[in-house]
Amino acid sequence: MLDLKGVNAGYGSFQALFDISLNVKAGEAVAVIGPNGAGKTTLMRVISGMTEPFSGEMEMEGKSLSSFPPHQIVELGIAHVPENRRLFPGMSVEDNLKLGAFAKTARSDSAKNLEFVYELFPRMKERRSQLAGTMSGGEQQMCAIGRAIMSGPKLLLMDEPSAGLAPVVVQQVFSLVRRIREEGYTVLIVEQNVQQVLQVVDRAYLLEAGQLIDSGKSKDLLESDSVRKAYMGL
C-alpha cells in the first residue's frame, strides 16, 4: 500500500533521514521504533506532505506522493495522528472530529463517520460538547485518532500515541490501536515504547540517527538479543 524508496529528508541544510526505504502492505500494522531524535516524527511528516523530502520516491497504492500538499495526501487516504495529539483545545470534541472530515473526499461521509467514531469510542460521544483541551491525555489521544478516522482513511499514521501518558493510560492507548486494526485499517506507527508496540504490530523497523538499521517480524524482534538490550534494558 505504502512504499518508500531511498527517501532523504531534513530541515534546511540539516539532514534528519538518510536513504529510508520501507513498505506497508494493506491490512498490516507496522511500527518504526527509535529513540528520541532518531527522525521518527520527520518520517511521518514527510509521508503526510508536511515536510518536503530532499530526494527519494514515495508511493501510495502506486500513486506518487512526492508532489502533493498535505490536504491532498489526506484525500489519497492517508491520515496523520500528529505527535502530542495537536487537538484544537478551544473547540468542542465534536468540532474537532468534524474538522477531521474537512477533506473534499470525506465531507459527504462526515455524518456516517462521526457515528462510526462514536460507536468505536463511546467516551467521545459522552464528551462531545466538552472542550477538547479539558479532557485527560488518554481521551485526547482517542479524540485525535477519531479525528484521523473522520477523513475515511485507508492508512493511519500514528506518531507516538503513548508519549506523555501514565502507564495505565498507555495500556488503553495500545488497546485502541488494536481496535483500529480489527476495524481493518492499515497502520504505520512510530514509538519509543518498544515492548508494548511490538505486541500490537506485525512488523517493525528500527530507526537510529536517521537510518533504518534493522527490520523484522515483531515476534522475532521481541526475541532478538540486540533489540532486548538496546530498547528494553533487558
Binding site: 503526510s48 508536511m50 498535505p70 484525500e75 491520515a79 477531521g100 474537512f102
Partner: peptide, 13 residues
C-alpha cells in the same frame, strides 16, 4: 489555533 494540525486534518491551509 494550529496550522500543522489543520494540515494533518486535511485542511488546505
Amino acid at each position: 489555533e494550529d496550522e500543522d494540525a489543520s494540515a494533518a486534518a486535511g485542511i488546505h491551509v
